[in-house]
Design a protein around this nucleic acid. Structure first.
Lengths: 151, 151
DNA sequence: CTTTAATATATCGTGTGCGATATAAAAATA
DNA sequence: TATTTTTATATCGCACACGATATATTAAAG
């Protein structure tokens, strides 16, 4: 009846589906390391810069502590990171890589290339992937702006 | 160290974030109807064509029954749909709208337009949104192809 | 210096997603 | 027809997301 209520006309459903499918395509690579996609995001941040506080991580991932804290707790239990209170400000919690967490970088570094490669082999073109980046950044920026306005 | 392991270089993280933020922007509109984004997806399918079997729904949403069945059970408990076994093939489960489920269409029909409008007001351009659609479709098609190959 | 407000993180409850497995019915095969 | 295989859906367990709330610590105000 209403064309705007048809699934095929909705950008949001495409984003929802694309995100699910592409993160799922990471899963087989992560399986032998016992990590998940969100845990991989945390590891990337720490590989880039170790010893960050929880707030740094939530800010980069655009997630809240109610999501990130449980992820960090699981990662600590698995021995990938440690969490310790800051001495300067004991409200803050500093997240650091263990040796095991550091070692994973070498083992995982080929995964993103590998996935990109297999997507390109299946008909997707590099220019298509490149074209999406600024569009997604603009969209994320726009929606993020709205979200902030309501606070 | 490895540029491909930087968050800022990853398409997947952008998709993951964009999907989260855009579906979250639906939430305030759904709140007064007590539904969620995935429940809204099911409703849209049924508004388009009532009395579909579970398999039709999983196929359109690219989800499995382990996700869809619990959603349908919650929707049935809320009185939005009913589920009944097919008489022709009692393995199949036919999902139908209740009157309440049907009534929601009128109340929700402006939501997608409303969201699109507010995104456009904040600097996103209509051409940007339109440009994303075929790119996402191509990506979804490509990853879907890979997923099927492994079966 | 005490009270109040702001900040940083954690906890709790609910609803997905999804891998793995179970169940039941229909279809195919022996 | 009895057995096996396939199909359709459901169940279970775990890890997110996220709204709401709680806790602890620091900063600001009185």
């Amino acid at each position: 009846m209403y064309p705007q209520l048809k699934l095929d006309n909705q950008l949001c459903f495409r984003l929802y589906t694309a995100a699910r499918l592409i993160t799922a395509s990471y899963t087989p690579f992560f399986k032998k390391f016992g990590i998940t996609y969100p845990q991989y995001l945390v590891l990337m941040l720490l590989w880039e810069k170790d010893n960050q506080v929880v707030g740094d991580i939530t800010e980069r991932l655009l997630l809240e502590t109610n999501t990130v804290t449980p992820i960090l707790q699981r990662m600590e239990k698995q021995g990938l990171i440690i969490r310790q209170k800051s001495k300067a400000d004991s409200r803050k919690c500093i997240v650091s890589l263990t040796n095991e967490g550091k070692r994973l970088e070498e083992q995982i570094k080929e995964v993103p290339n590998c996935l990109a490669h297999s997507i390109l082999e299946e008909g997707m073109e590099i220019d298509d992937l490149k074209a999406m980046v600024p569009l997604l950044d603009k969209l994320i920026g726009t929606i993020g702006k709205q979200t902030k306005q309501k606070e």
